[in-house]
């Protein structure tokens, strides 16, 4: 485990960005698919701190998630916001080279074949990863 962490540190150092100490995930205590997404991130080697705010919808607004991009859970990493069932690879790509002015990424709603929703081993497909900024302008970041 120690070796893995050291190796991970070397890799992120080489790739030009450093993760925050942990990923903060805001979700409802009754959200099962949020928990599945958290498990995927933890399995990939990230530390995740889970919070259950009383008013999740208001929190999303405060964090700047455009209303139409809403999903169940919201993650915050290095002051960037990640809404919904985003594949880890897209979060890594975003953090490695954050697009100018971007606030974060979102996978709106609950696509059935997205991480945390798909069956184990199922290929991710049928959804888009959307980039957004503070002005709620949107851009396609990746397509599955």
């Amino acid at each position: 485990m120690k070796l893995f962490k050291s190796l991970a540190l070397v890799i992120v150092s080489l790739s030009g960005f450093v993760w925050a100490e942990s990923i903060a995930v805001y979700k409802s205590p009754t959200c099962g698919c949020c928990t599945e997404w958290v498990k995927i991130m933890e399995k990939a080697g990230h530390t995740v701190d889970v919070y259950h705010p009383a008013d999740l919808m208001s929190l999303k607004q405060e964090l700047g998630v455009p209303r139409q991009l809403g999903s169940c859970h919201t993650a915050v990493i290095n002051d960037f916001v990640f809404e919904g069932h985003i594949p880890e690879a897209d979060i890594l790509a975003f953090l490695e080279n954050p697009p100018e002015g971007a606030k974060g990424l979102a996978v709106p709603g609950m696509p059935g074949q997205s991480p945390g929703m798909a069956r184990p081993g199922e290929t991710y497909s049928g959804f888009n990863v959307i980039e957004f900024n503070d002005q709620h302008q949107l851009k396609l970041f990746n397509r599955y």
Binding site: K27, S28, T30, C31, D55, L56, M57, G70, S71, C72, G109, M110, P111, G112, M117
Partner: peptide, 20 residues
């Protein structure tokens, strides 16, 4: 649950292209 049925089933139970 803090997110509603709508996130999986669309704004008016229409599905909205989501998993539900």
């Amino acid at each position: 649950g803090g997110y509603g049925c709508a996130v999986c089933h669309g704004q008016v139970g229409d599905g909205g292209g989501q998993a539900g």
